[in-house]
């Protein structure tokens, strides 16, 4: 549910996606016995009132050996149950060196419209779809594109609580996945081609809150709030690729989420999968507030159709 500026692709006020199953309200990312945490590399499959503030990222060194630091926020407001609008942005700092100039600025504002259209409670299976837009020329100091980028996105999540109790130890496992396509609003800018990007990723999670509530009691109060996880994110240009264009890029992000009742904190390492994705290891941390739990009767409920 968060807009992720550090991958430089988010956004999306946008046209409302028209896949509409009838659905009950899913506040937070809860489906059956499963609560999916908010993740950093890809989005989670739920839609709820929430605020990610801040998301602090020290990116891996780029191909010019520059270090980039990002601080961003993302706010999601539900309009009606299962449907929300998000906005996100934030400043970036890039160090200068002998190869390239550094600087400070803000990326383009990004917005997203997203609908949580499916929850099969018994199978802890959840799916959402949305469209995000990265808005041209809403940046500061040129840290964004001069054209809109439109990104349709699909997010799914599957918990394994429906496994037989003989496989109890595997029931806290969950997988979430995302696929999206960045479509530039302008195919050539200043003589340079802007490629269409296919992005995909997934997370592997082991929920100790789930373990504590459904498998076996955990006595340590800190440990029973942890969700160790690893995220995998990839992107590759699929059309309008410039001459000598790059291939697949991506990251592997091992980390952990501490999930409280009304907030969570996530911390992950960012490991580039190849030289085109960066050098060395970066780090990202995020503090995330669940407004549906903090302000259930005001800011945290849908504008239309929410329970009073």
């Amino acid at each position: 549910m968060s807009v992720r500026s550090y991958r430089g692709r988010l956004g999306g006020a946008a046209s409302l996606i028209a896949i509409l199953w009838m659905s009950p309200a899913f506040a937070h990312a809860v489906c059956g016995d499963r609560i999916f945490p908010a993740t950093l590399g890809i989005d989670d499959p739920g839609v709820g009132d929430e605020l990610a503030l801040p998301t602090i990222t020290a990116q891996p060194l780029n191909s010019s050996n520059q270090q980039e630091f990002d601080a961003s926020f993302s706010y999601t407001k539900t309009i009606f149950p299962g449907f929300g609008l998000s906005i996100g942005d934030g400043p970036s700092w890039v160090t200068s060196n002998s190869q390239a100039e550094g600087g400070y600025g803000w990326g383009n504002i990004s917005t997203e419209a997203k609908y949580n259209f499916l929850c099969l409670a018994e199978h802890e299976f959840m799916a959402s779809a949305g469209v995000s837009v990265d808005w041209a020329n809403t940046n500061i100091n040129g840290m964004g594109n001069s054209y809109n980028t439109y990104t349709p996105v699909l997010d799914i999540g599957k918990g394994f609580g429906d496994l037989p109790t003989s496989l109890n130890v595997f029931r806290p496992l969950a997988i979430t996945a995302e696929i999206s396509e960045d479509i530039p609003g302008q195919y050539v800018t200043g003589g340079a081609q802007n490629p269409v990007m296919l992005n995909w990723g997934f997370t592997l999670q082991y929920s100790l809150p789930y373990y504590n509530a459904n498998v076996a009691a955990i006595s340590n109060d800190f440990v029973k709030h942890l969700i160790p996880l690893t995220e995998f994110t990839f992107g590759t240009p699929i059309s309008n690729v410039p001459q000598g264009g790059y291939g697949i890029t991506g990251t592997v992000q091992p980390g952990v989420v501490y999930m409280s009742d009304t907030w969570q904190f996530a911390l992950e390492a960012i490991v580039p999968i190849n030289a085109a994705s960066g050098h060395n290891i970066g780090i990202v941390g995020e503090l995330h507030f669940f407004f549906d739990d903090i302000f259930p009767k005001t800011l945290g409920k849908p504008i239309f159709g929410g329970a009073s």
Partner: peptide, 25 residues
């Protein structure tokens, strides 16, 4: 934002903390 969130009386999803008999016990 952190102060507002932290200072607000919170109501949340009721998550199971522990039980008697204990989970899996």
């Amino acid at each position: 934002a952190a102060l507002v969130a932290a200072s607000t009386a919170a109501f949340a999803h009721a998550q199971l903390q522990d039980s008697v008999p204990p989970v899996g016990g």
